[in-house]
C-alpha cells in the first residue's frame, strides 16, 4: 500500500534520486519545447522548425545556446536584486514540485529498495500547492521589479489569476482524496487498481484540467503574457538566461501538471485490463500518459482563442468554483453513503 520506503532510504540514494530527477526534468523540457513547435506548425498548416538537425530536432539546442550566450541587460528603472531573484524562484519551485511525481512503485534495484519518486510526502498534493503558491512570487516580483507598465500589468493579472484558479484546482483534488482516503500520491495510484479515477471523478478531472490551464498560464488563459496586448507580459524586460529560466519553468510546470493528472486521475503507472508488466516498464507508462496530457495542452493552445480578462475572472469564480464545490459535496455524500 503506502510505499514502504520514504524517509528511511539511505542518504546516497536520495542524492542520486535528486540528480536523476533534475536530469530527467532538464531533458523533458527541450522535448516538450520541440513537440510544441512542431505540433503548432502542423495545427496551423505549416512545417514548424525543420532546419537545425534532422527534422529540426536540434532546434531546442540552438534556442538554448542562443539564449545563454545573449547579453544580460536590465532596464534602468528595474530593481536589481529582485530582477535577478525572480527567475530563480520560478525555476526552483518548478523543479521542486517535479520531485513529488511518482514514476513507479518501490523497486528492488541491486538489493536496495528504491521508490521511483523524489519523495512520498504524507501531505501529497498540498506539497505541490505550497510550491505553486511560492511560484507566484517568481512572476509577481519579475513583473514588478522590471519597472515597466506591460510587465506590471502582466504580473498583476498573473496574481489575480493564480489565486482565483488555485481554489478550484484544490477543490477538484479533494474529491479524489476523499475517494482514495489518502493524501500520499503513491497511495492514490494504488487505490486506482480497480478503476482509474477519471471515470468516477470525471467532473473533478475536467475541473482540474481547466484550472491547470490557468495555473500554468497556458492558452486560452495566458493573460499574463498576452502578446497581443502586453508585448510579453511579466517577462517583457527579461532576456538571455533569465528569460530562459522563465521559459524553462513554464514548460516544467506543464510537465508537472501532466504528471499530477496522470497520477491522480489516470492511474499513474497502472495499465488497464489487469496487465502487469515488470517494474522497469512503470516509468515509461507514466511518461506515455504524461505525453498525452502535454499533447492536450498543445492542442488546446492551437485551438482556442485567448479569453478576455473579465471573462477569465467570472468563469473562475462563477462557474468553476461552484462546480468544484458541488463535485466535492456529492463525492463526500456518495462516499459516506456507500461505506
Amino acid at each position: 500500500m503506502i510505499a514502504t520506503v520514504g524517509y528511511f532510504e539511505p542518504w546516497w540514494i536520495q542524492i542520486i534520486k535528486a540528480i536523476v530527477i533534475f536530469a530527467v526534468g532538464l531533458q523533458l523540457v527541450p522535448v516538450v519545447l520541440l513537440a510544441e513547435r512542431k505540433l503548432l506548425g502542423r495545427f496551423q498548416s505549416r512545417y514548424g522548425p525543420n532546419r537545425v538537425g534532422p527534422y529540426g530536432a536540434m532546434q531546442p539546442l540552438a534556442d538554448i545556446l542562443k539564449l545563454l550566450t545573449k547579453e544580460q541587460f536590465r532596464p534602468t528603472t528595474s530593481i536589481g536584486f529582485l530582477f535577478a531573484l525572480a527567475p530563480i524562484i520560478s525555476i526552483l519551485t518548478a523543479v521542486a514540485a517535479f520531485a513529488i511525481i511518482p514514476f513507479g512503485n518501490t523497486q528492488d534495484i541491486f538489493g536496495t529498495k528504491v521508490g521511483l519518486y523524489g519523495i512520498d510526502v504524507s501531505i501529497g498534493p498540498l506539497y505541490v500547492f505550497a510550491f505553486g503558491g511560492v511560484a507566484f512570487y517568481g512572476i509577481m516580483l519579475g513583473g514588478w521589479s522590471s519597472g515597466s507598465k506591460y510587465s506590471f500589468l502582466g504580473a498583476m493579472r498573473g496574481a489575480a489569476q493564480l489565486i482565483s484558479y488555485e481554489v478550484s484546482q484544490g477543490l477538484a483534488l479533494v474529491g479524489v482524496v476523499i475517494t482514495a482516503q489518502t493524501l500520499s500520491l503513491t497511495g492514490i495510484v494504488t487505490a486506482q487498481k480497480g478503476m482509474w479515477y477519471v471515470v468516477p471523478q470525471l467532473f473533478g478531472f475536467l475541473i482540474f484540467l481547466v484550472a491547470s490551464f490557468a495555473e500554468t498560464n497556458r492558452a486560452p488563459f495566458d493573460l499574463t503574457e498576452a502578446d497581443a496586448e502586453l508585448v510579453g507580459g511579466y517577462n517583457t524586460e527579461f532576456g538571455g538566461g533569465r528569460f530562459a529560466s522563465y521559459y524553462f519553468a513554464e514548460y516544467l510546470n506543464v510537465i508537472v501538471v501532466s504528471g499530477i493528472v496522470t497520477t491522480v486521475f489516470l492511474g499513474g503507472w497502472l495499465l488497464p485490463f489487469g496487465i502487469h508488466p515488470p517494474g522497469w516498464v512503470d516509468p515509461f507508462v507514466v511518461l506515455f500518459k504524461m505525453s498525452l496530457i502535454t499533447f492536450l495542452f498543445i492542442w488546446v493552445r492551437a485551438t482556442l482563442p485567448r479569453l478576455r480578462y473579465d471573462q477569465l475572472m467570472s468563469f473562475g469564480w462563477k462557474v468553476l468554483l461552484p462546480l468544484a464545490t458541488l463535485n466535492t459535496l456529492i463525492t463526500a455524500i456518495v462516499v459516506v453513503a456507500t461505506h
Binding site: 501531505i123 498540498l126 506539497y127 500547492f129 505550497a130 505553486g132 503558491g133 511560492v134 507566484f136 509577481m140 496574481a159 493564480l162 489565486i163 488555485e166
Partner: peptide, 15 residues
C-alpha cells in the same frame, strides 16, 4: 507547514 505556505504565503500575502 504546508498550510502555512499555501494559505499565508500563497494566498493572504499575494493579496
Amino acid at each position: 507547514a504546508a498550510v502555512q505556505v499555501v494559505v499565508y504565503a500563497g494566498a493572504v500575502m499575494v493579496l
